[in-house]
Amino acid sequence: MVHEVFPVGPLQCNCSIVGDETTGEAMVVDPGGDLVRIRAVLEAKKLRCTQIVVTHAHLDHIAGARRLSQMTGAPVFYNQLDLPLVEIMDQQAEWMGVALPEVAPPDASAEEGMKISVGGVTAEVMHTPGHTEGSLCLYFPNERLLLAGDTLFKGGIGRTDLPGGDARKILVSLQERLMGLPEQTIVVPGHGALTNIGDELENNPWLIGL
Rank of each mutant, 00 (worst) to 15 (best):
Q175Y: 14
G113N: 09
G134C: 06
L138S: 08
R144Q: 15
A123Q: 12
A148C: 07
L174Q: 11
R159Y: 11
L162P: 03
A148W: 07
M114W: 09
L174W: 11
H131C: 13
G113K: 04
L136C: 12
V125A: 04
P141V: 08
L162A: 13
M126F: 07
P141D: 11
T160C: 15
K115Q: 14
H131P: 07
P163C: 09
V121Y: 11
K169L: 15
R144D: 02
A110E: 04
E143N: 12
G134T: 05
R177K: 15
L171P: 00
T132M: 04
T132K: 03
M126C: 01
S135E: 15
G130Q: 02
G130M: 02
P129H: 08
A104H: 04
R144V: 06
P141K: 04
C137L: 05
G113C: 06
A148S: 14
H127K: 12
A123T: 11
H131W: 06
A104P: 01
L152W: 02
E176F: 03
H131I: 06
S173P: 12
V172G: 04
K154A: 14
L138T: 12
T122A: 06
S135G: 13
G155N: 05
R177G: 01
R177S: 05
L171E: 13
G134S: 05
H127N: 06
K154W: 08
R168W: 12
